[in-house]
Amino acid sequence: MSEVVPVAHPPVLALRGITKRFGGVQALVDVDLRVRAGEVVALAGDNGAGKSTLVKVISGVSPADRGVIEWEGRLVQIKRPHDAHALGIATVYQDLAMCDNLDVVGNLFLGREIDRVGVLDEVEMERRARDLMRALSIRIPDVRVPVAALSAGQRQAVAISRSLMGAPKVLLLDEPTAALGVEQTSHLLDLIEEVRDRGMAIILISHNMGDIKAVADRVAVLRLGRNNGLFDVSTVTQEQIISSVTGAADNAVAHRSKGDEEAWP
């Protein structure tokens, strides 16, 4: 697998030995992951494999117990959402947590409102919200409706716009297509390719092999909180990924992870 990795570019984000436990549950054990600019890495794995936990580690919502995080080659600490945001990591969470009582503009700018000496500049925020929606060709009938009144797809679109607002370098998407219809999914995949082509690094969590095949460059598999394979999407078959996800390929794990170690010195 080492040949698929262009060695010239150092990864923008690299995780090594990430370990996290919740009480008795070992959610993550010695997980490694790296992603380069302009690359989509899919993260696959069964329910409870630890994908969302890994996302929360990277986004600072619930930091790891052990392990190191490198950002553009230097060691960093991500202890709070603010740290991740300051580095340029944006996240769309699986549960799309939003403030249902606030409108689209309010949610887009939550935590980074535009203000003049503490007083909200609603006009400017609304203007930028519209511009952003237009640039991403997202159709929301009215940016002043409370998000609770939006459809699942629209909520997803708002969540993604929100994550793209600060021009991040790494985008984490936790099962973004799970609630979407066919057309909305293909629109989202287009969007992912577009931001990838602008040089953003993307970690895409998905159970959908079709989506992974469509946009990802590499796919990393987690199983029971551990790395269970790293594949080049252009050469791997769907069956190989699935057997790695389900553990049918457990026999192969030993030499797979060896191969990974070679790829990741």
Binding site: T91, A97, C99, D100
Partner: peptide, 24 residues
């Protein structure tokens, strides 16, 4: 209703998790 601080108050009431993730 007009200040950044007030917006945080509404945010906490409308979605604690979202508020926390937004760094509030």
């Amino acid at each position: 209703r007009r200040t950044r601080y007030g917006r945080r108050v509404y945010a906490v009431g409308g979605g604690v998790e979202a508020a926390r993730r937004a760094g509030i």
